[in-house]
């Protein structure tokens, strides 16, 4: 039921998170997370509110600085907390910014730049951060926006766009940096129900094109459709990690059982069809 042809077990790990811990003050919200994502793999992160999903995602691009652990993208250690180092973690800022550009992040609240048009939003990263050629960037940005079904809206400001359109601009903005992995934090939670589908479709297209994705979502049906693997996070720890049909349809952990309960009511009816596929 995987969306894209074959990530294949041969593909090496693109993103590797080891023994990751994150503290806010004295409170530890991530308590030793290990996670490997292969190239082209789509991993969905689920869990109750406050379980640390957003925090984990924000650690991967170092919007949150972990208190312990190691993060590797494409074989390069982007973060390696060294308790012996004086500041407690030792990554030079220049490296951090270069690495961040290798991950694309899509936020729940879109966070588009309101003083820029859709096109300018998409061009901003390559032009400002990568000092890319303006004309080439413009062509590529127009292309990305067209792929997102926004060809008619490139000159509009975010306030002139619907939530669904804004979120698709945000996806294009992140894609314009040619990230190795895309991070999505509840990309459809802030949308009116009738706009959810268009954003999901854009994400499915992205997954089919072979993009490596780490997605936080509460839409379990969508998770089932898009994920190669589903991870259940509970109180800052991964308690279940497997193919969607195992995690979502045959949960073993009691918390996961109750979490997917609402999904089950429909899934139970569908099980014969899902398993037969």
């Amino acid at each position: 039921m995987s969306v894209h042809p074959n990530p294949g077990p041969a593909a090496g790990p693109l993103l590797k998170v080891e023994a990751l811990r994150l503290k806010f003050g004295t409170r530890e919200v991530l308590k030793g997370v290990d996670l490997t994502v292969r190239k082209g793999e789509v991993v969905v992160l689920i869990g109750a509110s406050g379980s640390g999903k957003t925090s984990l995602l924000r650690c991967v691009n170092l919007l949150n600085l972990p208190s312990h652990g190691k993060i590797t993208i494409g074989g390069e250690a982007i973060y390696s907390a060294n308790p012996a180092a004086r500041d407690g973690n030792g990554v030079p800022l220049a490296t951090v910014n270069r690495i961040r550009a290798q991950t694309g992040m899509v936020f729940q609240q879109f966070n588009l730049f309101p003083h820029m048009t859709a096109l300018e939003n998409v061009m901003e990263g390559p032009v400002t951060v990568k000092k890319a050629n303006r004309d080439a960037t413009r062509r590529e940005a127009l292309d990305l926006l067209a792929q997102m079904g926004l060809a008619d809206h490139v000159g509009k400001y975010p306030r002139q766009l619907s939530g669904g359109q804004q979120q698709r601009v945000a996806i294009a903005r992140a894609m314009a940096m040619h990230p190795q992995v895309m991070l999505f934090d509840e990309p459809t939670s802030a949308l009116d129900p009738e706009l959810v589908g268009e954003v999901m479709k854009a994400m499915l297209d992205l997954a089919r094109s072979g993009m490596t994705m780490l997605i936080v979502t509460h839409e379990l049906g969508f998770a089932f459709e898009i994920a190669d693997r589903v991870i259940f996070l509970d109180e800052g720890q991964i308690v279940e990690d497997g193919p969607p049909r195992d995690v979502l349809l045959r949960p073993t952990h009691p918390r996961l059982k109750s979490f997917v309960g609402r999904f089950h009511e429909t899934a139970d009816l569908l099980r014969p069809f899902l398993e037969g596929s």
């Binding site: 919007l63 910014n97 270069r98 991950t103 992040m105 730049f113 990263g125 951060v129 940096m177």
Partner: peptide, 22 residues
């Protein structure tokens, strides 16, 4: 909004770029 800082930081912008551009 904090989200503006998050979004520009996530694109890899430095402090100066964030301030100046966003």
């Amino acid at each position: 909004d904090r989200g503006q800082t998050d979004a520009s930081t996530a694109l890899g912008m430095t402090y100066g770029q964030r301030m100046r551009r966003v």
